[in-house]
């Protein structure tokens, strides 16, 4: 019970700080919206025809890149006034601190997705909401995996110089399976979009959803195991 209250305290603190400053959410959302807008000019023809195969990729590029901005800033805040040390001095499990931070970041990414997914549907005319349940599962599982892996690397780079440059370099190779799974699962939901006789490939979508769930489990376990050694000097 005390553990959960500590996880909640750390996550709530991150949300409260963000709701006061609003810098992470505004930056992430603006960046993701710009990515979608630029791609919409590139991939929507004058006749309004969209190349359907590119839509999942565009959606996940927007989420992944804006997520890195959020991760970087959320951990940068713990450097100002050295608050990460303040957290680590507290008599609570480092796992609680890690989970609290990851939940905070996952919340930021989910809020961005709430804006970005309908925007993708509108700009590209993509029937993303025809299969809302698998879509929500894909988004939630991918966001959890992203936040967990991202929090580990952001914490690891907290004391390094050039961490803003290094974070995407070390993070994206590990995120490749997650981004492929997210893209493939979304593509399966959009299969045959625009063709009234075609149906979405739900079997493929659920295969990738299971893949995301396994990815999350592996990386949550690894993160909980390694976090303490990453943050101790």
């Amino acid at each position: 019970m005390e553990f959960l209250s500590q996880v909640a305290a750390v996550a709530w603190k991150d949300l409260r700080v963000e709701f006061r400053s609003r810098e992470i959410l505004y930056t992430m959302t603006f960046f993701a919206a710009m990515v979608l807008l630029i791609f919409s000019f590139a991939f929507v023809t004058r006749e309004g025809v969209v190349l359907p195969d590119v839509i999942p990729g565009i959606l996940w590029v927007a989420v992944a890149f804006s997520g890195t901005l959020g991760l970087s800033r959320a951990f940068d805040r713990e450097r100002e006034s050295d608050t990460m040390r303040g957290l680590l001095l507290a008599p609570c499990s480092r796992t609680a601190i890690f989970l609290g931070k990851a939940i905070g970041i996952a919340t930021f990414i989910l809020i961005v997705e709430i804006v970005v997914v309908p925007m993708t549907a509108v700009l590209f005319g993509a029937p993303l909401f025809d299969h809302a349940v698998p879509l929500v599962l894909i988004l939630i599982l991918a966001t959890i995996g992203y936040s967990v892996v991202g929090s580990v690397f952001a914490a690891m780079l907290l004391r390094t110089r050039s961490r803003d440059v290094l974070l995407p370099v070390v993070l994206y190779p590990i995120l490749v399976p997650l981004l492929i799974a997210g893209t493939k699962a979304t593509a399966a939901l959009l299969e045959g979009a625009g063709d009234p006789t075609a149906v979405a490939d739900l079997d493929a979508a659920y295969f990738w959803i299971k893949f995301l769930a396994v990815y999350d489990m592996i990386f949550i376990a690894t993160a909980l195991w390694t976090f303490e050694s990453l943050v101790i000097e």
Partner: peptide
């Protein structure tokens, strides 16, 4: 511990 840094969140 009282360190060089305050360990305080500026927004709170």
């Amino acid at each position: 511990v009282l360190a060089h840094s305050s360990f305080m969140y500026g927004e709170l």
